[in-house]
């Protein structure tokens, strides 16, 4: 459990980060919270020659309300999401998901940007980002570009990030009035990845669903946006029948990998159960 040797860099500004990435190419890895990367390095599954630590890069921190959007620096930690009064007021779903990730110590180190950029289908933020229609800011030698969460995740550990790019910010639209959201996660124990999990964001007007987004965690090579399931709710009252129907549609897109958490049948069924849970809670929150 000892990493292979590497060189360490601790740049203090974003241009330096991008320059280092350009200089070392494939040899370099970005170090955010480190709780995915360092374990892989300790197992010697990963052995980068250069580690670029982002912890001193001030422009990657902070949570702010900018116009109709919340902007969150990529290096914002899970516990910062949980403790943020701004998010508690505008986007409580972010604290709800963060509370279900890993454990307290890991949440002091683990970052929002790291969780998303890693491209691990077991991570929890990707589905939430999809459900909240987030936009990611990616910076590189070319400057900045914006990518929608729904277009970011390409495959297992494969994202829209190109070599030399770094995720700097996550932008989330403020939800319209009457919106409720929830993240429901089934896990074996604290610190585990989801057996299956679902994020649901619904907007209700006059008891009728006018907008819905549902996304799933760890039941495919990436987080999955359950478009048909969400669409099935629009124009309906979110009752048990509608919830059950949406869950059934969501289960149709599941393609989980069997492991000790369960086989395909169990994980798919649990994805359906989590969709139901998330929808029930989200719908109840619309009324408040």
């Amino acid at each position: 459990m000892i990493p292979r040797p590497f060189e360490y860099h601790a740049p203090t500004a974003l241009p330096e980060v991008i320059a280092l990435l350009g200089q070392y190419g494939d040899e370099a890895k970005l170090l955010a919270g480190g709780h995915s990367l360092l374990p892989m390095m300790k197992l010697r599954f990963a052995g980068p020659g250069h580690l670029i630590d982002l912890r001193k890069v001030a422009e990657l921190k902070g949570i702010a309300l900018v116009g109709g959007e919340i902007h969150i620096g990529a290096m914002t930690t899970e516990n910062e999401l949980i403790f943020s009064t701004l998010l508690a007021k505008h986007l409580p779903l972010l604290a709800e998901v963060a509370r279900q990730i890993a454990d307290p110590q890991v949440r002091y180190k683990g970052t929002l940007g790291g969780d998303i950029s890693h491209g691990d289908p077991g991570n929890d933020h990707p589905a939430v980002m999809m459900a909240m229609d987030a936009t990611f800011v990616l910076a590189g030698a070319h400057g900045e570009r914006l990518v929608k969460a729904s277009e970011f995740f390409h495959g297992l550990y494969d994202t829209a990030l190109t070599p030399g790019e770094v995720m700097t910010q996550i932008r989330l639209p403020l939800p319209p009035a009457g919106t409720g959201s929830s993240y429901a996660k089934l896990k074996r124990k604290t610190g585990d990845y989801a057996t299956a999990a679902a994020a649901a964001v619904v907007q209700v007007k006059n008891s009728v669903c006018v907008q819905a987004r549902i996304a799933l965690t760890n039941v495919g090579p990436t987080a999955l946006l359950a478009g048909d399931a969400a669409a099935s709710l629009v124009g309906k009252t979110i009752d048990e029948a509608a919830i059950g129907h949406a869950a059934a549609l969501a289960m149709k897109i599941c393609d989980p990998t069997p492991d000790l958490r369960g086989d395909e049948a169990y994980k798919t069924a649990m994805a359906g159960q989590m969709v139901e849970r998330a929808l029930r809670t989200a719908a109840a929150r619309c009324a408040i």
Partner: peptide
Amino acid sequence: ASVKSCTVL
């Protein structure tokens, strides 16, 4: 912050 020192350089 509480940190697991096995996973910090």
